[in-house]
């Protein structure tokens, strides 16, 4: 089911954002930056271009902070992070509702993996 796949993909993005938050936006480990780039590609394949573009901006913004002393673009990064997170939450909510609506209409019940 398309809605289920979108919801799962967005849930993965949310988990990534939670890991980013846990680490703090000041210094992000290379592994998380790599995951960001990966998710950027995946969400674009699902047709979520806006999200993909924002994840790309976030990746570039985080990379720019590496190996420097100045606290540059902190406010912009935080604002961007919050926009992405808000989009993901709303996306999960909507796709979850859509998925539930489709399932309840199915009389021959088959739970998908």
């Amino acid at each position: 089911m398309k809605e289920q796949k979108i919801r799962k993909e967005l849930t993965q993005v949310r988990e990534l954002l939670a890991d980013l938050f846990q680490s703090g936006l000041t210094n992000i480990p290379e592994s998380l930056v790599a995951r960001l780039s990966q998710e950027e590609t995946f969400v674009r394949q699902y047709g979520m271009e806006w999200l993909s573009d924002r994840l790309h901006e976030l990746t570039e913004g985080l990379k720019a902070r590496r190996h420097i002393f100045e606290d540059i673009n902190a406010d912009e990064l935080v604002a961007l992070f919050c926009r992405i997170e808000g989009f993901v939450e709303e996306g999960i909510r909507q796709s979850s509702l859509d998925e539930a609506g489709i399932r309840i209409g199915q009389k021959d019940w088959k739970q998908e993996e």
Binding site: G24, A74, D75, V78
Partner: peptide, 13 residues
């Protein structure tokens, strides 16, 4: 805004 921004930069850990 400054307080919240600091929390994001520091991180949950």
């Amino acid at each position: 805004r400054a307080f919240l921004g600091e929390l994001f930069m520091i991180g949950g850990a």
